[in-house]
Design a protein around this nucleic acid. Structure first.
Length: 791
RNA sequence: GCGGAUGUGGCGAAAUUGGCAGACGCGCUGGACUUAGAAUCCAGUGGGCAACCGUGGGGGUUCAAGUCCCUCCAUCCGCACCA
């Protein structure tokens, strides 16, 4: 289908992009006047050959917001970069039989040209890719900062291993037991690994959520991921040793009729009696083989009796000790007290293995115990206490006997950051036989990633095959030593990048402290919700560490966060290559230019929700800028004289300002259309009204708005982005008369026009004939809205 | 199981503090201009002939409920044997 266009959109785009470039319109200077405004989109992985529709839906509306802020007088910093290290780029390179470096550089070039086509207000002097040596040198610096204060450490631990990617993954990258990148099942593997001690910041990460303007969902996800729970650690003595259990329900301790220990727990060996040992050993080795997925899928509880008993410290009764894989070794103490009377899982287990079930908590509604508790000793003194008070009282009593104490635990685990892969930042550590683990000194950074021909992952770090890289001198004592050959998780690269943009070209510091404290935190951060428990958590952690180390003064990186919705295929399904329902932005840009694509994205969806793609709406939206063009051609006077247009003009300006500020782009476009309708309806088209309309549209259709603006003022050559965003004229916001609704018994009877801000008496006089002589029992009057007579 | 959402015309969607439901646009219908219309302009467009009825269902509060409360249903997303 060919549409007749009065404007050659693609040509307009090229023309104004060149104009911006020639006149440095997008240049950023941190010292310019205007209040600072730092707005940022999550930096893209340049792993694919070109930007996809999702990128556009992220970047184009964000750019509209940035341009709006600029026209409002802010000094707007809106940089863009590329998250070029890591599995996505490397896996793509492996698949396409290219080298990640060549491939990545090529992709970045293409990305930049597309971002330019999109009309993004980027100053490329403030840009980098995370695989640039000048950038990752400072990622290594960051690692050493963490290492020096004990937050980067090595330990032998069970880690998530992806067999397909041949590398360790963090918990965040293997949620649900599946590799985030390739969807294959993750195994558990015991190995020595580098970690960042994010758990030290669990409480701060939790508390910080209260003071940032983020979507509730994201905060809830982080809270859930951190998983704070307050409870107590109770000691259950046995003949062999003490068993510590963690519980949030100390108040149910009199109902604890057994103990369960996780199969991996070393204490199992101690408490197991000799005659039962074979059973237990067999069970443990079987449990160890189970993958997380099997564990998750199989919710039926299995376990085995160890033969041993522990003493319930509250009742002094002996309770049997079981090993069962429904208890997680990595959470709490790896052992729990089984309270089948009050916990569904314990109940299921106790029923299966014939363990005694006791109920000990009063039922608040009936004030009766629902089952017998006759065997309990000493429990009466706790009856009637709330769970919270009982917890404190009982814990205090146990504390006196040195059998328990209050304890807060978190689900959050330390962040495993070492990767047995090639395409990442080399960890700047040297192993010396004499000095041990030595951080590479600042003066020796960067530890450069060599260009390896063979970087295929085979389980060990590819860098370990490069002798030139491995062999080095110990920075401390000078003897022959070896470099660490693992690289860092790509999320380390992206955990601090927002600090670097402004200093992208500085090679003496990672970032300038004074300027950073002036420009950060980021005012508006925009990106997908999928990073809630990864990147967004890591960035907060690193920021808090940097604050503690005195490098920055703020402790949250992103004061306000927006997640864009997802654009779905026309059938409402997620777009995916395998379903063959993807839509490429390129053909639309070629045909209409990026502004039309942008306008459609702004108008056709609620930004936060997203929704299915509709080709028809995109095509018909091309008509709107042409309508504005026709209005310009009809300009007959400079000043606006039409009262209605004046009113619509003022209210539109006010509404659009609010809408663009709050990412309500679809209504902003709608307001502009209403304004255009009002101008169309007037007897004569005024230059100043059309000018305001085009100014309002400028952030949304930057290239076309420049063209329209140049038609309004054909004798001046100036960028619309150096003009001020319109402000509403106060006196035109209010109309002198207003229509209000007259209701009788809450049903609408009539609409009357009356002067604005009329009093109830004035309105009632006008309503006399509507009431037809009836006297209302009650009158509700809402000024400028309605009057309701109850008869 | 826990947590977060969402549910409004034929379609995409609007609707501060409860105050004219469906703005704006698409589509559709009719008209104008046209050799023509898939361009443009004008008019109409939730349902119903009406009284009335309409925001997932059912209750409730209120003069007034898409909006607040209770309850149920459906869909989506995240986490999940977290003691």
């Amino acid at each position: 289908m060919v549409y007749f266009c009065i404007m050659n959109y693609p040509q307009i785009h090229d023309k104004w992009r060149k104009f911006w470039q020639d006149n440095n319109i997008n240049k950023f200077n941190p010292n310019d006047k205007g209040k600072k405004y730092y707005t940022l989109e999550m930096l893209p992985y340049p792993s694919g050959a070109s930007l996809h529709l999702g990128h556009f839906f992220n970047f184009a509306p964000s750019d509209t917001h940035a341009r709006f802020k600029r026209m409002c007088g802010f000094n707007v910093f809106h940089p863009m970069g590329f998250d070029s290290f890591g599995l996505p780029s490397e896996n793509h390179a492996l698949k396409t039989n290219t080298h990640p470096e060549d491939n990545t550089n090529k992709n970045i070039e293409k990305f930049i040209s597309q971002l330019e086509q999109l009309g993004g207000m980027y100053d490329w002097d403030y840009s980098f890719s995370t695989h640039d040596v000048d950038y990752y040198k400072w990622t290594q610096w960051l690692f050493i900062e963490l290492f020096n204060c004990g937050l980067a450490y090595q330990k032998d631990a069970a880690v998530n291993w992806c067999g397909d990617c041949q590398t360790v993954l963090s918990n965040e990258q293997s949620q649900g037991g599946v590799c985030e990148r390739c969807d294959s099942e993750v195994e558990r593997k015991q190995m020595k690994q580098w970690f960042f001690k994010i758990t030290d910041y669990a409480e701060e990460l939790l508390k910080g959520l209260d003071k940032i303007d983020w979507p509730n969902k994201t905060k809830a996800m982080q809270r859930n991921w951190i998983g704070k729970s307050e409870g107590a650690i109770i000691t259950y003595p046995t003949n062999a040793c003490d068993i510590q259990v963690f519980t949030t329900r100390v108040d149910t301790i009199f109902g604890a009729t057994f103990i369960v220990i996780a199969p991996e727990h070393p204490i199992v060996q101690k408490v197991t009696t000799k005659d039962r040992k074979p059973d237990v050993d067999a069970y443990i080795s079987a449990a160890a083989k189970k993958s997380d997925i099997e564990r998750m899928e199989n919710h039926e509880k299995t376990g085995v009796f160890t033969g041993g008993y522990a003493i319930n410290p509250a009742s002094n009764l002996p309770v049997p000790i079981y090993v069962a894989d429904y208890v997680l070794y990595t959470y709490g103490t790896g052992a729990v007290m089984g309270v089948p009377g009050h916990d569904a899982r314990d109940h299921e287990f106790a029923t299966k293995y014939g363990i005694e079930i006791k109920k000990v908590i009063q039922n608040n509604d009936t004030n009766e115990f629902t089952e017998e508790y006759g065997t309990l000793i000493n429990s009466n003194q706790y009856n009637g206490l709330s769970s919270e008070v009982a917890l404190k009282t009982i814990t205090n009593d146990l504390k006196k006997k040195k059998l328990g104490f209050l304890k807060t635990t978190y689900r959050l685990r330390d962040w495993s950051i070492g990767r047995q892969r090639y395409w990442g930042v080399p960890i700047p550590i040297v192993y010396c036989d004499k000095c041990g683990v030595v951080p590479v000194p600042m003066s020796d950074l960067p530890v450069t990633l060599p260009y390896l021909q063979d970087f295929k992952p085979r389980g060990n770090a590819p860098l370990s095959n490069d002798e030139n890289f491995v062999n080095c001198k110990c920075p401390t004592c000078g003897i022959n030593a070896k470099h660490e050959t693992e690289t860092m998780d790509t999320f380390v690269c992206s955990s601090w990048y927002f600090l670097r943009y402004m200093f992208a070209k500085r090679d003496d510091v990672a970032f300038d402290v004074e300027m950073t404290n002036k420009w950060l935190p980021v005012d508006k951060y925009i990106g997908g919700a999928e990073h809630s428990c990864g990147h967004l958590l890591y960035s907060r952690f690193i920021t808090k560490v940097l604050k503690k180390l005195g490098h920055v003064k703020f402790d949250e990186p992103f004061s306000s966060l927006v997640h864009q919705g997802m654009i779905l295929a026309p059938d409402g399904q997620k777009m995916s290559k395998s379903k063959n329902n993807t839509i490429s932005p390129d053909k639309y840009i070629e045909e209409f230019g990026s502004d039309i694509l942008r306008l459609y994205m702004l108008f056709g969806f609620n930004y936060i929700d997203g929704g299915p793609w509709n080709d028809g709406t995109l095509r018909t939206i091309t008509k709107f800028p042409e309508r504005v063009m026709r209005l310009i051609e009809k300009i007959g006077t400079d000043k606006e004289t039409d009262n209605n247009v004046q009113h619509v003009r003022a209210t539109t300006i006010k509404a659009v300002r609010e809408d663009l500020d709050s990412f309500s782009f679809n209504t902003a476009v709608a307001r502009c259309m209403e304004f255009a309708n009002a101008i169309t309806g007037a007897k004569i088209v005024s230059r100043e009204s059309v000018r305001d309309l085009v100014l309002l549209l400028a952030p949304m259709i930057p290239h076309i708005a420049e063209e329209l603006y140049s038609k309004i003022y054909p004798n001046k050559i100036q960028s619309i982005f150096n003009q001020k965003f319109p402000k509403p004229i106060a006196k035109h916001l209010e109309k002198s008369t207003i229509e209000i609704v007259v209701q009788i018994n809450s049903k609408i009877k009539e609409r009357i026009t009356i002067k604005t801000d009329a009093t109830q008496d004035e309105v009632m006089k006008l309503c006399a004939n509507i009431l037809e002589g009836q006297t209302p029992k009650k009158v509700i009057y809402v000024q400028n809205k309605l009057i309701n007579f109850i008869i």
